[in-house]
């Protein structure tokens, strides 16, 4: 009975601790960053910090490099993970069941450990090089300190990550949908585009935006495996802080990167809000 007249401040009280931490540790610093980005070292208003990055060739190169890297990671990860998820969903073999257990693990391996493990394989004196020498082939992969190295390490994480999201989505595709479509004479192409895709495209968007957002600010992987020049935006930001100690410029770059991510976030939120409306209706 008294459940009906919930005290109106109750939910706020319950949300307060978590939100306070968020406010203090994330939101205030972000607002502070935005303010900093418009000021000089001694607190005068300026647009120079933004001007610097918008006109600097180095920053432009980094932006192009990051965008190409992020898009290739995203596309490759989506294609492979979609195939993997389809296989896991529709194959009933023993191998598929084993892979179904094994593919979740990489999501939980500490990032830096995995990067290190992959580095030891692909570096020029790594496993691939040593193994091929057994057959008298001297091959230096040249993958490390190159965009390819970053993409390979990222695929290691992101294929399982998005395969996980897509498998969850594909479990909504009942066998009966597929069978009835087959009975009505549909080929796999049609089943894929007309039945499976509409049920999973939202999760494809979620996975893709998370991968993209992750790449824009990525630090660990490019720091350990990427080239010195051009570099990813995350490294450029790190340099502003650590090498040049230029916090105002770093702030401006953070804001610019946030704006890029925001594009992705908007798509993500929009596709999620649709679900909201559907849930509210039930």
């Amino acid at each position: 009975m008294d459940k009906k007249k919930v005290r109106p401040w109750m939910p706020y009280l319950m949300v307060a601790p978590a939100f306070t931490v968020m406010l203090l540790v994330v939101i205030l610093p972000i607002l502070n960053t935005v303010a900093q980005s418009f000021s000089t070292a001694d607190g005068q208003f300026t647009l120079a910090n933004y001007q610097y990055f918008l006109t600097s060739y180095e920053a432009f190169e980094s932006l192009v490099f990051t965008v190409i890297e992020a898009l290739s990671t995203m596309l490759l990860a989506m294609v492979f993970s979609f195939l993997l998820a389809l296989y896991l969903r529709f194959s009933k073999s023993g191998i598929s069941r084993i892979i179904g257990r094994l593919y979740l693990l990489p999501r939980f391996i500490p990032g830096i450990v995995a990067v290190y493990a992959v580095m030891n394989i692909i570096k020029d004196a790594g496993f691939i090089n040593r193994f091929l020498q057994l057959f008298g082939i001297m091959y230096k992969p040249g993958l490390l300190y190159d965009m390819k190295g970053i993409v390979i390490c990222n695929l290691w994480f992101n294929i399982p990550f998005s395969a996980m999201l897509l498998s969850a989505a594909l479990s909504n595709v009942a066998d009966s949908y597929v069978e009835s479509a087959k009975d009505a004479g549909c080929g796999w192409g049609k089943i894929l585009t007309k039945i499976i895709w509409p049920l999973v495209y939202k999760d494809v968007i979620v996975a893709a935006t998370f991968i993209l957002m992750g790449q824009i600010g990525a630090f660990t992987i490019p720091y350990l495996t990427g080239p010195n020049n051009p570099k990813m935006l995350g490294i450029l930001l790190y340099q502003q802080v650590n090498t040049y100690l230029d916090y105002q410029r770093a702030a401006a770059l953070s804001v610019l990167m946030f704006i890029i991510c925001l594009g992705g976030a908007v798509v993500y939120i929009k596709s999620n809000m649709k679900e909201e409306a559907w849930q509210a209706g039930k």
Binding site: V25, N32, G217, F219, L237, A265
Partner: peptide, 15 residues
């Protein structure tokens, strides 16, 4: 997840 981590950490450090 949307704001660059390095940016948050630097700003966090100030506070």
């Amino acid at each position: 997840n949307a704001f660059p981590k390095m940016g948050i950490y630097t700003a966090m450090a100030v506070i």
